[in-house]
Design a protein around this nucleic acid. Structure first.
Lengths: 261, 261
DNA sequence: CCCTCTATTTGGTCTGACCAATTTGGTCTG
DNA sequence: CAGACCAAATTGGTCAGACCAAATAGAGGG
């Protein structure tokens, strides 16, 4: 949010989406800067800024003689958000993959956090878990606490790599899901299990156990989200319910990725 | 590689490093485009392209009235490579975090791959493991096979999110480590264990087991790399053996990240 | 049909200019 | 002296037009 709407950003967004929609074949020539400038009724400078961004996203490759389109597989994570936000209903496959990944990283965070935490931090975390357990029934109220807990764990684990990945992932995904109002219904029993496991892990300083509990929990969430998306999502416009797009994750086995020019 | 050396890229690289080296405090004003143009003896256009990239990296925030520096924590993963490549010896802490993360993702990949693989793919994977086991003693020769194996698993697992993250991570890290010639000495016994676990997992279609084996293995690798870096790395220039820089991952708890302007 | 050599295209960069929004600094007022 | 206020300087956003070097495409010759 607070996005600074700029011509170059707009151009970048449009072109990005076109590429993500596979309107260009990988390796194909991209329109020249001058052409794009005409098309968008903008100056070449603006276009160049846009292309500069697309290049950083790994979507195109700018080189003298002509710009070329790259395979989506070789793009940066930053394209995930747009990829999911493109259609009004994000690809369920992608969402699931997302949750899997997020789960794995959260699991790692939990493990590291518990293994690294000092006595004080352990107590703090434990308190948070207890607090969470008390609000088990109130999903809405629990949400922020849960996030806070995750964030605290992140801080304790203090893994910059995970945090950076988390930034991109969260920024692009969580927001998207929120906007769609997807509320996965996780069974209370499952949550109870998670919290109790966490509590014990914290008590024993058993990071591995916490990791595995977190893992299990995320698998449940994945299931719940999947169901929520399948049912609840027969919302207003289901006009363009393209079943495809999932193929984004499939085809295009190997490409001319490392063609040294 | 095959990088298209451009003024704007150079400028971006220089400024990026300066920001990563904390030469600007978070939130602080960034030099104006015109000033930068003078400093780099370049045109404003070139500078703008550079800034455009830095913005996408999440390092700065361009808005009318002035550009401001952002907290590293809120940057994109793409800064990890530069962050590690800055000093001639990458921060061991960062390397470890990197391996942890990579391990978690690889672990996930293994799990998914085995759970999703069809009969044919299972056989293929198993063959690869067997082949690997036969070359246990030849580290050099094994390396490419190992990579191939991982890549095949990635393909089978078919998780776009992981793949994209992997792109960034590999591109920025593996290369860096290679260049440094860090060769972790993992005990053969450990490798044997991993391979045998993998083999059985493949036979039983037990993804969880494979995941856990992979996890264990990466923990070993982390240890080995850590040792390798501590000893072997008393190479030529140890002039600037700044023990700091690790602090990058520590300080700066919370910042003015969500200041809505 | 292949190779070679131009003419064109394309990216890379610069200069200089104008607008609108923000910042800044000083002035005026209570 | 504090605070509101206004104007000038600064800063980003964008455009137009121009030149260079490298790469491409196409015509022509072998």
């Amino acid at each position: 949010m607070t996005e600074n709407i700029t011509i170059s950003h707009e151009i970048a967004a449009v072109l990005r989406d076109e590429i993500l929609r596979q309107q260009f074949r990988c390796g194909e020539r991209f329109p020249s800067e001058r052409d794009l400038a005409v098309r968008f009724n903008a100056s070449r400078g603006a276009v160049r800024e846009a292309l500069s961004q697309l290049e950083l996203l790994g979507l195109i490759r700018i080189l003298p003689g002509g710009t070329r389109v790259q395979a989506i597989d070789s793009a940066s994570i930053a394209v995930l958000g747009p990829l999911m936000a493109m259609d009004d209903m994000p690809d369920p496959v992608l969402v699931d993959q997302f949750l899997q990944t997020f789960g794995a990283l959260t699991s790692l965070t939990a493990r590291t956090a518990i293994n690294r935490a000092d006595a004080k931090q352990l107590i703090l975390l434990e308190e948070m878990v207890v607090e969470l357990a008390q609000q088990l029934s109130d999903f809405e109220a629990m949400q922020p606490k849960w996030r806070e807990f995750l964030q605290t764990m992140e801080t304790v684990a203090d893994n910059l790599v995970v945090r950076l990945i988390g930034n991109d992932l969260k920024a692009q995904f969580v927001e998207q899901m929120m906007k769609l109002g997807v509320k996965p219904e996780v069974e209370k029993k499952t949550l109870e299990q998670l919290l109790s496991s966490l509590q014990q892990s914290l008590a024993n300083g058993d990071g591995d156990r916490a990791a595995s509990a977190m893992q299990t929990h995320f698998d449940e969430v994945r299931l719940a989200v999947s169901e929520a998306m399948n049912s609840e999502l027969m919302t207003p416009e289901l006009t363009n319910a393209k079943p495809g797009n999932s193929k984004l994750a499939n085809d295009r086995a190997e490409d001319l990725q490392r063609e040294t020019v």
